[in-house]
Nucleic acid binder design. Sequence first.
DNA 1: ATAGTAATGATAATAGTAATCATTATCATA
DNA 2: TATGATAATGATTACTATTATCATTACTAT
Lengths: 134, 134
Amino acid sequence: MRMKITKARRLILEELRKCRSHPTADELFRRLRLQLPRVSLATIYRNLELLERRGLIRRLDLGSGRRHYDGNIADHAHIRCIECGAVADICSPGRRWWHEIQQESGYSLIGSQIEVIGLCPRCLKRKKGNERRR
Amino acid sequence: MRMKITKARRLILEELRKCRSHPTADELFRRLRLQLPRVSLATIYRNLELLERRGLIRRLDLGSGRRHYDGNIADHAHIRCIECGAVADICSPGRRWWHEIQQESGYSLIGSQIEVIGLCPRCLKRKKGNERRR
DNA sequence: ATAGTAATGATAATAGTAATCATTATCATA
DNA sequence: TATGATAATGATTACTATTATCATTACTAT
Ligand SMILES: [Mn+2]
Ligand SMILES: [Mn+2]
Ligand SMILES: [Zn+2]
Ligand SMILES: [Zn+2]
């Protein structure tokens, strides 16, 4: 089954490759409607699934209830602010660790989903300010 | 608000500490009903949330659609078989990496959720067998 | 034993994602 | 460029895991 290049598909991939914000399906839907007003949310989901299966994008199952999508398929991990939800890139733990777990677990490794949770610099600052004020 | 020790709560924690299989809420529900036939699924969810907030268990938001729970709160990561869904323990990447990302990202780190995906030894074997047969 | 209140069971509500289906758009071929 | 096969779409519904609601029950400090 070959993949046709449709307007929605092209725009979704472009948007994901352009932005660094790891949007959800709904965020992409709202952005895409500006250029393609009649697009359906179902089209967003279907294309995200297809693009992920083709290895053109990454799907992030963070623990926030909604999935995030990433146009950057280079090896990297993510950090999410527990306060504002922002998702940023971080570097992965090294190849060393990867080989270790492959040896120890006996699994054949396919991919990884590594998320670190914390407070982003902005929220950290705000929280500290609030504490001082009390 | 202090936490009362109820039958359901005690049994959930015992089951999670005993088993190594990282069950979902529904799996726990079915197991608990053998000992507590009138228990409600809502009770399972409420207790899991409470126990997680108290730091007595861990909640795993893997990319499988359902959450898994872990009675082992020692520092470790997880590996999930993409074929059969089995979730096993692996060791975390080292403290070194943790410090690096704290420095580089500027975040104040709280926790991490690290999942590696692959094929478990059993599924790997089965798949190889099938290929040979073709 | 009792009073105060946290927890429960039953059930409805929510929300994100997936499925359905008639219609439309894409694209290899002529 | 026109055509035909079929992949993709929009609109809508269905599904499923989790959360909220609320009257009733079970804990526990006194
Ligand atoms: Mn990223
Ligand atoms: Mn574990
Ligand atoms: Zn933040
Ligand atoms: Zn397996």
